[in-house]
Amino acid sequence: MPLTRPEDIADLLQNSRTIAIVGASDNPSRPSFGVMKFLQDQGYRVIPVNPRITGEHVHGEYVWRDLSQIGEPIDIVDIFRKSEEAGDIVDQAIAVGAKAVWMQLGVMDEAAAKRAEDAGLKVVMDHCPKIEFARLGLRPVERPA
């Protein structure tokens, strides 16, 4: 079952440090642009992933083509893509050893969520970490070295 209890979502956010945003955008009008900046401001290392802008920089971070290129531990893979694309991203998250997948508002894939859970990942679906952070009254995390 995806995490729904506020205390479970808070625990995931407070015990994570590195978030990869798949579908990150360099366009300030896109929600992923603002969410990435918000998460950085809360102390997270946020790694943008988007094959259309690979090699560019968003909020000072290099944009990767896919999760397999990152080569460092990822706590949460935040999915800013359509629901029908979430399954492939979840499979990549499993393959790279991410600890959790987070499907943004409106992004839902029950089969992918089950695969992630079966592989030992925590799953949040149809939520936004920026909204949850504020709703739960969380404090900024200690930024990774």
Rank of each mutant, 00 (worst) to 15 (best):
M1Q: 13
M1T: 14
P6V: 08
D8T: 06
I9Q: 04
L12N: 08
N15E: 06
S16V: 04
T18L: 08
I19E: 11
A20D: 05
G23I: 11
S25N: 08
N27L: 11
P31A: 00
S32T: 12
F33R: 08
F33P: 04
G34I: 00
L39N: 10
D41E: 14
D41P: 01
Y44W: 03
Y44T: 06
V49L: 10
P51H: 14
I53G: 05
T54S: 14
H57M: 12
G60Q: 09
G60C: 08
G60S: 07
Y62Q: 15
L67C: 07
Q69R: 10
I70W: 02
I70V: 13
E72R: 12
I74F: 02
D75R: 05
I76K: 07
D78T: 04
F80Q: 14
R81A: 09
R81D: 13
S83L: 12
E85T: 00
E85P: 00
A86I: 09
D88L: 09
I89H: 05
I89L: 13
I94P: 04
G97E: 04
A100F: 03
W102L: 02
M103I: 02
Q104P: 14
L105A: 06
G106P: 11
E110T: 12
A112S: 05
A116V: 04
A119D: 02
G120Q: 04
L121R: 10
L121D: 11
V124I: 15
V124W: 00
C128Q: 08
P129L: 01
K130R: 15
I131W: 07
A134P: 00
A134R: 12
R135Q: 12
L136V: 08
R139F: 09
A145D: 15
